[in-house]
Amino acid sequence: MILAVAGGKGGVGKSTVALNLGAELDAVVVDADLAMADLAAGRGPDLHDVLAGRAAPLEAVREDGPVALLPCGRTLAGARAADARRLVETVEAVAEAYGRVVVDSPAGMAADAGMPLLAADAAVLVAAPREYALADAIRTRELARELDAGLAAVALNRTAGACRITSASRTESTDSVREALGAPVVAIPDDDRVRRAQRQGWPVSVLAPDSTPADRFRELAREVDDVRQFRES
């Protein structure tokens, strides 16, 4: 199964959700943010090389970290040389070899954001609890529908929100997101451990397996799995 983590807006925590979801689903995480890669890369071929035809998809998958990763290069020249159209066949090749793939999508609504949704069977939207981020999530949901990637769940990422809100307005915003996007909403609480783990390229479950954020990512993975089982049955 191929799952796209999308969200329209930049800086809402798509890479964080992708990495943690990849860990929970035991999937390969593909960092498809061609111009602004977020997930740590090491040496060796990366997604730029694959999309430019210089490396095979499976060559670029790293299995040495806590989550298997197909990283993306960080140069603009590499992003320019990469052919985004190849992303679909690349992700499909990884899915065939590994089973599950989580694609971390770039921000925006251009073709590089559409390609992961085209490749995916389902999408997880990441929204920050701010109005304009929600508007972008709604536009991304429309695009996901057009490209046949059903919305599996919404991750409401408060880690990226960075604003203190009362518990009453928290419930209210979760409800309004559910209403606006029409999908199960899982709120990821603001927790420094998530950020710390992400900086190391780890899911939070490595650093704090019993923390609330780790619980929430497990919940998010269950929502995604439910959709998958429904589709397969």
Binding site: A35, R85, A110, A111, A113, G114
Partner: peptide, 10 residues
């Protein structure tokens, strides 16, 4: 998808 959304190459 490229035709409809436009390429995002830098």
């Amino acid at each position: 998808v490229v035709r409809a959304l436009g390429t995002a190459r830098p």
